[in-house]
Design a protein around this nucleic acid. Sequence first.
DNA 1: CCTTGACCTTGACCCAGCGTCAACCCTCGA
DNA 2: TCGAGGGTTGACGCTGGGTCAAGGTCAAGG
Lengths: 257, 257
Amino acid sequence: MLTISQLASYAGVTVRAVRHYHAKGLLVEPERDHSGYRRYDAAAVVDLIKIRILADAGVPLSRVKELLAAGDDDFKKAVAEIDKRLRLEIRERQSHRERIARLAHGDGLALPPEAVSYLERLRELGIPERIIEGERDAWILVAAQQPQSMEAFIRSKVGQLEDPSVVETYKQMEELLDWEPGDPRLEAIADRIVSQLETISPEDWAAYVEDDTSMPPELVALLDSMFVEQVPVARDLMRLVEKRGYTGWTKLERIEK
Amino acid sequence: MLTISQLASYAGVTVRAVRHYHAKGLLVEPERDHSGYRRYDAAAVVDLIKIRILADAGVPLSRVKELLAAGDDDFKKAVAEIDKRLRLEIRERQSHRERIARLAHGDGLALPPEAVSYLERLRELGIPERIIEGERDAWILVAAQQPQSMEAFIRSKVGQLEDPSVVETYKQMEELLDWEPGDPRLEAIADRIVSQLETISPEDWAAYVEDDTSMPPELVALLDSMFVEQVPVARDLMRLVEKRGYTGWTKLERIEK
DNA sequence: CCTTGACCTTGACCCAGCGTCAACCCTCGA
DNA sequence: TCGAGGGTTGACGCTGGGTCAAGGTCAAGG
């Protein structure tokens, strides 16, 4: 006859766990000896091992209790489900591995590879680091909301970089970060931005509007507010651009009159 | 500016979780508006997403807090460890899949394949089902204690089955299960067992002793006690065998005088 | 016979990571 | 002005046990 600690050590669990299983009704309470100690037979070891196999596989103890009482058919069905869950958990862990790997690897905080390469491209083009950080954070938001459209968004952005004057504008943005509201140089910047918009041909403009249609308005608003928060002159600049016939920032639109 | 529920929905977490992260110091408490509501900027969304990436990967929140404050080097080291853990968890789940599959599949409660095929062999040889169940439970105990030696144990057992008189003895064991202590037929059984032991050549005997040396004495004792509990005449039989010069059951030993 | 140390008993509190009330205040549109 | 639907803090609940606490018991040795 076994004491509780012997039983526990045979099955590789703690004494506390055995008592816990008694309390939960997973393991029947054995006879007590004259002094109240629990006394186990070897069959209890087998029962305990079964419990551990199920519990180790992540089955909640309440479910283990049901399964031990279940018939062979129900048991097999349940095992099939447990197996399905285990496979799912394996796949989840695999994707978590990718996500933290990207998180560790510089920019790739939460970004898919195409976004990382876009940021790399900005860097190659000599865009200042502070601007790139802002872009990165914005893309993290977009990736969180619209992962399935990231590729299309990025493609459209990379296309815009082919115009050297767009790249120039980006570069100028850095000094703008430190300007105070009301800075007179903003007028020139607004002119520049608007003149760039005007060079877009009507069909390209239609495509651009089309592309961004899938970005939900609240995401656009969030990105705009991010711009406003981080750049002191943002509000001024948006007002000046609006005077020239365009509204918004993340998604610029011609004002119809 | 975002309210807490907006922030939460952008990052794909619950409001309760956001407050929890504030309470744990993972996310800095933002300014409150005039009515005491928390007001967030877009950077908080980015922070929150980072937290989720780490937490989803199974990093405890206390550790997440450290990592957010850590330098780039420490961070990369930590990520390498997290990745290691994820790989380990994947492997664990793979082995749990195998274990529950065996559990669902008839005998293979917690048994490695070699044990299952040994039990199949017993069945082929016409050994009664009640005896096989006893064997199965015994092997579950052995597998739990000495998984690395299972193959050797089973090999030795399969070898013994080649002697037809051993098989005969096994078959006779079934009726013995229902005998009452003191049954006179036990004498003949004891003779049989001892005569079988005597047919073993000295070198085979040495090999047999050698084989079982790796089974720890407490495991042998447990298996013996299992026999004693399940078979009423077990103690009688062991006494009779002992009279004839051998002690024990699971591991029979010649008594030296 | 007594002590000592190892083991047994029950009961109760503690942890993560939030979910889920409760009880109250604030905001906004009709 | 009212009611719905936000927000606030605080407290308890869940799992699967770990970890005391405050005793009773056992076997061995002096």
